Computed example of a mutant assay.
Amino acid sequence: MTDIKRGDDSPRYFIVGNRTVKWVPLENGNLQILKLDWVTGLFIPGLDYMPKCLFADDSEQVSEDEFIQQTEAMRRESFTGDNAVFALYGLLDTIEATAKAERRLLTEQELAIIALTQRKTHAMFESVCRLGENYTRKKPY
Score class of each variant (00 low, 15 high):
T2Q: 15
T2V: 14
T2L: 14
D3L: 15
D3Y: 14
I4K: 07
I4G: 01
R6Q: 07
G7N: 13
D8S: 13
P11M: 04
R12V: 08
F14L: 05
I15H: 02
I15N: 00
V16I: 13
N18H: 09
R19F: 12
R19Q: 11
R19D: 10
T20Y: 00
V21Y: 03
V21A: 11
V21F: 08
K22A: 03
E27W: 01
N30W: 04
N30Q: 08
L31M: 13
L31H: 01
L31E: 03
Q32E: 05
I33F: 04
L34C: 07
L34Y: 08
L36I: 13
D37C: 12
D37Y: 11
D37F: 10
T40M: 03
T40A: 03
T40V: 07
G41E: 07
G41L: 08
L42P: 03
F43A: 09
F43C: 04
F43D: 04
I44V: 10
I44A: 00
G46H: 00
G46Q: 02
L47I: 15
Y49W: 09
M50Y: 02
P51Q: 08
P51R: 05
P51L: 11
K52F: 10
C53I: 10
L54F: 07
L54A: 04
F55N: 10
F55K: 09
F55L: 15
D57R: 09
D57H: 03
D57F: 02
D58W: 12
D58H: 06
D58R: 06
E60G: 01
E60I: 08
Q61I: 15
Q61T: 12
V62L: 11
E66H: 00
I68D: 00
Q69V: 13
Q70H: 02
T71A: 02
E72W: 13
A73I: 07
M74V: 10
R76G: 09
E77W: 07
F79I: 13
T80Y: 13
G81T: 13
G81D: 12
G81R: 10
A84K: 07
A84Y: 02
V85R: 09
V85Y: 04
F86Y: 05
A87R: 15
A87M: 14
Y89R: 02
G90I: 13
L91R: 14
L91Y: 07
I95C: 00
I95R: 01
E96L: 01
A97M: 08
A97Y: 02
T98L: 11
A99Q: 01
A99R: 06
K100N: 06
A101I: 02
E102L: 09
R103Q: 15
R103M: 12
R103P: 05
R104W: 14
R104A: 14
L105W: 11
T107G: 02
E108S: 15
E110C: 12
A112F: 01
A112Q: 10
A112R: 05
I113D: 04
I113Q: 08
I114F: 02
I114E: 04
A115D: 07
A115P: 01
L116E: 13
T117S: 01
Q118P: 00
Q118R: 10
A123P: 00
A123I: 05
M124N: 04
F125W: 04
F125Q: 09
E126F: 03
E126R: 06
S127I: 08
V128F: 03
C129Y: 06
C129K: 02
C129A: 04
G132Y: 11
E133K: 05
T136H: 09
K138I: 02
K139G: 05
K139N: 07
K139F: 04
P140K: 06
